[in-house]
Nucleic acid binder design. Sequence first.
DNA 1: AATCCAGCATACCAAAACGGTATTGGACGC
DNA 2: GCGTCCAATACCGTTTTGGTATGCTGGATT
Lengths: 107, 107
Amino acid sequence: MSLAQIRYFVAVAEEGNVGRAAERLHIAQPPVSRQIRALEDEIGTPLFVRTPRGMQLLPSGRAFLDRARQILSAVDEASAAAKSAATGTPSWPTKPIYRRRNQRSER
Amino acid sequence: MSLAQIRYFVAVAEEGNVGRAAERLHIAQPPVSRQIRALEDEIGTPLFVRTPRGMQLLPSGRAFLDRARQILSAVDEASAAAKSAATGTPSWPTKPIYRRRNQRSER
DNA sequence: AATCCAGCATACCAAAACGGTATTGGACGC
DNA sequence: GCGTCCAATACCGTTTTGGTATGCTGGATT
């Protein structure tokens, strides 16, 4: 399970439609479709019913959705919390021990 | 930010040592080192001080650690919640709409 | 009931991310 | 100064991910 899969899932759940979810995520439709499938495979239970009108949440999907949103906000809060705890903390230790060396790309 | 990065971070924070964290994660040391670095780059602030004795958490790191643990348990709970909500739900809708077609591997 | 259409699934390929091995760089203790 | 302990970097092969093109399904329309 990856954060991307969780984000895709939330988008599909909210849009009820893979195509529109993909648009909202600024990626193509097939990757979203595949990741949703992979997510269902991994947790071992389907989360949606596929209909010709789109994707409809199953009870399992609704249960998952709650936690999924919780995870995504915790992720946002995590980096915000780290940053706010770092205010006043120098970006590098005043007495560097392992100095950061040159690097050619940020990968 | 990925779930792997978060898991690596927790391991390093708890071991205070990249090498041992790697061992505990059953992967090599350099990937852990790189992912921790990437995480710090992404959130924009260092989380550890590097010393010749190992890695020491900064205040930002302690703040991050709380949320990180929260995220990891929410991930576990998410799939458990979906599975438990699925009990009694047939694995496939009784009246299939989009039937799942053959596939050669589970990827 | 044949056709059309909306929408998810699959095949195939290219690009990016990831992990492993080997090696370097850096600080501390003797 | 030399050895040791650790983290960082270089480099490479593998895996994962996303994109494009296309197929398949079932309801709606007439």
